[in-house]
Simulated assay, not measured.
Amino acid sequence: MTQPVLESSHPSAETGGGVRSVKSAERTIAVLEYLSSAPRACSPRELTTALGLPRASGYALLTTLVSTGWVEIDGAGGYRIGIRALRAGASYVERDDVVQRAQPVMNELNDQLGETVHLARLDGAEIVYLATNISRHSLTVVSRPGRRLPSWATGLGKAILAGHPWEEVDALLPETLEARTVHTFTDRAALRAELEETRRRGHAIDDQESTIGLRCFAVALDFAAPPNEALSCSVPMVRLDPDREEAIVSALLRARARIIR
C-alpha cells in the first residue's frame, strides 16, 4: 500500500523519504521558531528579511498566526510568540515520560541542596531545558523550561555529549563553536579532551562556561545508549568549596540512580 503524499497549492519540495513537504507549513514553523528564540518582539520587515519570506505572504502568515493565538502583537506593533505556543509547550512537558520520572526526585534534590536543579534534553547541537527547580537563595541564575543553549557550553550538554562517540559529536556540532563566556570551549581538540575527562570522571562540570560566576555539575541520564537527557545542579561560586562540590556530585549520582531505576 502506498504512503499518502501531502499536497498543497503552495510550492513544495520532496523530502528524503519521498513525502512532499508543504511550503506554507515550513514557513509557519520557521516563523514560530524564530519568534520563540528572539530576545524581543520583531517587526514584519525583520521577520521576512531574516527568513527570506516574500513580504506579502509573510504578512498574511503573521495575520493568520495572530488570529489563531500563536503569535501576539505588542503595544509597539512588534510580533512575539503567543499564548497558544505556551500551551503546546506545557502539554509536551506534562506528557513527557522522562520529566514525569525525574520531577519527584528533582523536588527532593532541590530541598536537600537548596540549589537550582535542571533537567534537559539534547536537540541537535543544543540542549533544551525541560524542567527547573529554583534555588531558595536570592543569588541564583535560572534557565526556564524551553530555553535552548549550546551543548558544548553547558554541563548538561557536556554530560550528554560525553556519552556519544566523538565522531558523532564532531558531526553534530557547528563548524564554529561560539563562546558564551571567556571560559567556553571553542577549540574542538580541547572540547574532545574535556569530554574524555568527563567520561572518566563520571560527571560534567561547567566552570563559568555558560554564565560568569556560576558552576554547574551534571550527570547524564542513560535511559538509552547513547544518552539524550541530563540532570544538573547550578551553584554560584561564592557558595562553593571542595566539600560542598563533593556533596552536590554525590547527591546528583544518587538522584540519577533513582530516576533510572
Rank of each mutant, 00 (worst) to 15 (best):
Q3L: 15
V5D: 15
L6H: 14
S8N: 01
S8I: 14
S9I: 15
A13N: 14
G16W: 02
G16A: 10
K23N: 14
S24W: 02
A25Y: 13
A25P: 04
E26I: 02
E33L: 12
S37E: 09
S37Q: 07
A38G: 07
S43N: 05
P44W: 04
L47A: 07
A50T: 08
G52Q: 04
L53E: 00
R55T: 13
A56S: 14
G58R: 08
A60D: 15
L61C: 05
T63S: 12
T68D: 10
E72G: 06
G77E: 05
R80A: 11
R80Q: 12
I81V: 13
R87F: 07
R87A: 10
A88M: 15
A90H: 07
S91L: 15
D97Q: 12
V99A: 11
V99H: 03
A102P: 00
P104R: 01
V105M: 12
M106Q: 11
E108N: 13
L109T: 10
N110A: 15
D111V: 08
D111A: 06
Q112V: 09
L113C: 03
G114L: 11
E115M: 12
E115A: 08
L119H: 01
R121W: 01
G124E: 04
A125W: 11
I127T: 07
Y129W: 05
Y129L: 03
I134V: 08
H137D: 12
H137L: 05
S138Q: 09
T140E: 11
R144N: 10
G146H: 01
R147N: 11
R147W: 10
R148I: 10
R148P: 05
R148W: 03
P150F: 09
W152F: 05
G155R: 02
K158G: 05
A159V: 02
I160H: 01
I160Q: 04
L161R: 00
P165V: 02
W166D: 00
E168R: 02
A171Q: 12
A171V: 06
L172S: 10
L173V: 03
P174K: 00
T176K: 09
A179M: 00
R180E: 14
H183G: 10
T184P: 01
F185V: 02
T186F: 09
D187F: 11
A189K: 12
A189F: 11
A190L: 05
A193Y: 01
E194P: 04
E194S: 06
L195Q: 08
R199A: 11
R199T: 07
R200H: 00
R201T: 10
H203E: 09
A204K: 00
Q208G: 09
Q208E: 14
S210P: 05
R215L: 09
C216D: 13
L221R: 09
P227N: 04
P227I: 04
N228Y: 08
A230V: 03
A230T: 01
S232M: 09
C233D: 06
S234G: 08
V235Q: 04
M237L: 15
R239N: 15
R239S: 13
L240W: 01
P242R: 14
P242G: 14
P242T: 06
P242K: 15
D243E: 15
E245R: 07
I248Y: 00
I248G: 12
I248F: 08
S250E: 11
R254L: 14
R254A: 14
A255F: 03
R256L: 01
A257Y: 08
I259G: 04
